[in-house]
Nucleic acid binder design. Structure first.
Length: 582
RNA sequence: CGGGGCGUAGCGCAGUCUGGUAGCGCACUUGACUGGGGGUCAAGUGGUCGUAGGUUCAAAUCCUAUCGCCCCGACCA
């Protein structure tokens, strides 16, 4: 393609709302055009990159025996009601919906388990047809609370979603493992190192799931990992070991209630009682769990030096959503101001649970649901009933992980997620097949997603410098550019066109930059757009010399014009497969 | 959902407090000179000032409503 015909537009200034590097650079390079909050037009240049990312996904999934199909974006509400997820997604605020002229309500696909299960239900009769894994690359919609960071968090995006159907759990395990490997090939094939981490299964349910994270300082997810053991988990799911409660063998002392006016935090309480360290206090966090037809009150006890993990707690409550009580609700339910809730005199309406760090604590300090008062030397079982103990705490960097190594922290962009769903959806929707035994049984399902448009943004997030984007070759909109510095000079242009034609003949995706820009403007522009290799046809052309520029290093070599094509071909073909072993 | 802020040319912004001819930079068009790191000069194009209503002789500016966008918070007991 000729640059003069590519509708290239670049900007010298950053957009006012760009916070992260990929957003900034993609906007400046004219790759994305904002149409509204969380909605972007993709430029022709960006679409080339997205198409390449899509094709890498296709290549690896096809190699794993997956079948591409296409499912509707408009999905009937009643289909989602079969699995109970309409309520769930509405409660979570994720589902965008619309209605047709008859008043029928449709969801705009945030994902497609229901639709694909309905498809398989209608088309699968026998175990002989299984296993089947289908996938599509299609637009998805999510009503994000707060779209931001350019293409990294948007309301409308391009996603690959795959769904596997197996005869039993053992068969699912094999399929899941196959897809896990394919996922690593996909990310490596894009030129990125993604690592798999244990993840919360979120709204999908199911027995196992793994997220694929692309390390980036601006990532919205936090990963905790152990260096040697290979343990890595999303902070939403991560566990760590903790020190046993201090004074476990102390004799219980008599409970006494003291005045603690206007305290709000454990640190402030510590000011009143310097002898009681924060880790001998118990915080009482008050929540409501929202279910589809009712709300429940929950109180979670946790040691003063620990932080609650609301995802773990929500999973325990089984609610669709978990919300902290407002100050007003706290007053209404406990009669006390915010800051004084406690397991003592707790209204019966509350379900009380406690984090495992609370188990075994003695002579602790906690609230008594009375404004401006706290109790000291409280003992579990004696002063309040023994609650259910479980892991409700947030693991933190530096704490010993499951294998005992100190946990390290890394920020990442969630690029993919794989789940073992089991029969949750197929059973609910009656998607059964005739087994070998002659009895109908539900298909065992897995689901798998890759944020294709997000991956492309993540690639920019990971590969850039002060001058702009540095595309990895597998995603680059063009693998190479032939830049003619003075396109008005017919002879120079002819040399450029000859190199361009040869590269094309060799199968290189090449752009001829024939735009009449000043050399400085042209160099900056090409660097901003981030093409991996540039052959500069300039002042030395009369001596038969051109320049070979490497975007990643910004190094320039003068080479003979006759070597230009072979140099580019060699470099590009070496990098086309990303990080895959050849 | 709570708090704060912003809507003025394609982009980035000033002008609003104190009502009186709508501006600047970039980009874009034409011409000339340039030609290896966003070059120079000259002449131009482009805006119902988010929308609707109100006050006023007069509204980008004041008032009301509304729509949109951005940021922070929503891990506090």
């Amino acid at each position: 393609m000729r640059a003069s015909r590519l509708h290239l537009v670049t900007y010298r200034e950053d957009p006012a709302d760009a916070e992260v590097v990929s957003h900034r650079l993609m906007a400046r390079a004219g790759l994305i055009f904002k149409m509204g909050s969380g909605m972007y037009a993709y430029s022709p240049l960006l679409w080339r990159a997205i198409r390449k990312a899509t094709n890498i996904v296709r290549r690896e999934l096809d190699a794993s025996g997956c079948l591409e199909l296409q499912l509707p974006i408009l999905q009937d509400k009643s289909l989602w009601e079969e699995t109970g997820r309409w309520e769930k997604y509405k409660a979570a605020g994720v589902m965008l919906s619309t209605t047709d002229r008859k008043g029928t309500t449709f969801g705009l696909a945030p994902t497609a388990e229901e639709v694909v299960t309905a498809f398989m239900r209608a088309t699968t009769k026998s175990y002989k047809q299984l296993p089947v894994t289908v996938y599509q690359v299609h637009t998805k919609f999510r009503d994000e609370i707060r779209p931001r960071f350019g293409l990294l968090r948007v309301k409308e995006f391009l996603m690959m979603d795959a769904y596997s159907f197996d005869v039993d759990d053992a068969a699912l395990d094999i399929t899941y493992e196959e897809l896990r490997k394919a996922y690593h090939r996909v990310f490596r094939g894009m030129g990125m190192e993604a690592f798999g981490v244990e993840a919360d299964s979120g709204d999908f349910g199911g027995s196992g799931s793994m997220e694929f994270m692309i390390p980036a300082s601006t990532g919205e997810d936090t990963i905790l990992y152990e260096e040697a053991s290979g343990y890595a988990a999303n902070v939403e799911k991560a566990t760590s070991q903790f020190a046993a409660p201090e004074g476990a063998d102390e004799a219980p002392r008599d409970l006494h209630v003291e005045d603690t006016p206007n305290v709000r935090t454990c640190e402030e309480l510590n000011g009143f009682f310097p002898d009681v360290p924060v880790h001998r206090m118990v915080k009482t966090l008050l929540y409501k769990a929202v279910h589809h037809d009712h709300e429940e009150l929950w109180a979670c006890l946790i040691r003063g030096d620990q932080q609650a993990n609301e995802i773990k707690l929500r999973n325990h409550t089984g609610g669709l959503a978990l919300e902290m009580l407002t100050d007003e609700e706290i007053r209404q339910h406990t009669g006390a101001k915010q800051g004084f809730a406690g397991p003592i005199n707790m209204p019966e309406a509350f379900n009380i649970v406690a984090d495992v760090t609370v188990e075994g604590m003695t002579n602790l300090l906690c609230g008594v649901n009375e404004t401006d008062k706290h109790a000291l030397d409280v003992n579990i079982g004696r002063d309040f009933p023994v609650p259910t103990f479980a892991d409700f705490r947030t693991a933190r960097e530096g704490e010993p992980g499951p294998s005992g190594e100190p946990l390290k922290l890394e920020k990442g962009i969630e690029a993919g997620h794989i789940f073992k769903l089991g029969t949750e959806y197929t059973a609910a929707m009656g998607a059964t097949f005739m087994g070998q035994t002659g009895k109908p049984q539900p298909m065992v399902m897995g689901c798998y997603g890759i944020g294709v448009s997000r991956c492309v943004a993540a690639a920019v997030e990971q590969h850039s410098d002060d001058n702009g984007i540095v595309w990895p070759v597998p995603l680059a909109p063009f693998e190479a550019v032939v830049a003619v510095l003075k396109p008005k000079k017919a002879e120079m242009l002819a040399h450029g066109e000859a190199i361009y034609a040869s590269l094309q003949a060799k199968g290189i995706e090449v752009m001829l930059d024939d735009r009449p820009l000043s050399p400085g403007a042209k160099f900056r522009d090409l660097e901003l757009m981030g093409f991996p290799y540039v052959i500069v046809v300039g002042r030395d052309i009369d001596e038969g010399v051109v320049e070979f520029k490497v975007r990643a290093t910004n190094e320039t070599d003068k080479i003979a014009i006759d070597d230009a094509v072979s140099t580019v071909v060699e470099r590009v073909t070496a990098e086309r497969t990303g990080l895959l072993e050849r």
